[in-house]
């Protein structure tokens, strides 16, 4: 069972995760309007900006984050933004959505001008997240763990970051054992997604360059 302290940490992170989302009117634009390639690019860029703002608001609410050195806070957010964004957007393909919405979104991303070599690993990731059928709590904790990764570039006090990440990892490990008693490997599978995210992160800069070119 989770201790009282762990339950409080879990509630705090899940509440913050649910509270900070992409504004609904922006999310709606993705589904409702037709855009040419350039407008599509601008819309997806605005979405990315909004994702980062939402990510920062969520992160500010992770217990202890604001006690870290200010420049370390920025280094952590910079290092994890792309990964957290992929994680959050994977939700779109996990949740049950009204008929046709998933296809429409996929179509919009596929027609964004991003080249096929980057598209395939991205959709493979979305599929692998979808297969996990993560609970909201697991998604929120995994995002917090991604953000609190001590070995990001330019992080000075890695130990301080570890001290924040470890309790969140413990809660996630326990939660996985409680919610998936038949699947002892579930926690390891979740952590495996973090490795996949790192790979996507590495490809991301290259992907943006090719996207801008096209």
């Amino acid at each position: 069972e989770l201790t009282q302290e762990q339950q409080t940490l879990l509630n705090f992170i899940v509440d913050a995760y649910n509270k900070h989302r992409i504004p609904q009117d922006m999310a709606k634009k993705l589904l409702q309007e037709q855009f040419n390639t350039e407008e599509n690019f601008i819309l997806l860029t605005e979405m990315a900006t909004s994702h980062v703002q939402v990510l920062v608001e969520f992160t500010k609410n992770i217990p202890g984050f604001l006690t870290l050195d200010h420049e370390d806070q920025i280094a952590l957010l910079k290092g994890s933004a792309v990964e957290a964004m992929f994680l959050r957007s994977a939700q779109v393909f996990t949740r049950k959505m009204p008929q046709g919405h998933t296809e429409l979104l996929e179509e919009r991303i596929r027609r964004s001008g991003i080249s096929e070599e980057f598209m395939t690993p991205m959709f493979n990731f979305y599929k692998s997240i979808c297969n996990l059928q993560m609970m909201q709590e697991e998604q929120a904790l995994l995002t917090a763990i991604t953000i609190l990764t001590p070995d990001r570039p330019y992080v000075k006090d890695q130990r301080a970051v570890e001290r924040l990440q470890e309790p969140v990892l413990d809660v996630l490990r326990k939660l996985c054992a409680l919610q998936h008693p038949q699947e002892p490997q579930y926690f390891a599978r979740l952590l495996g997604r973090l490795t996949e995210l790192r790979t996507l992160n590495h490809h991301h800069a290259e992907m943006l360059t090719s996207w801008r070119m096209s």
């Binding site: 605005e46 900006t49 806070q73 957010l77 910079k78």
Partner: peptide
């Protein structure tokens, strides 16, 4: 527009401000 800002600028601005207000 925000979309012209770099990632670090967006993070710094968001950390300083409070979007909830």
């Amino acid at each position: 527009p925000a979309s012209n800002l770099g990632l670090e600028d967006i993070i710094r601005k968001a950390l300083m401000g409070n979007l909830e207000d």
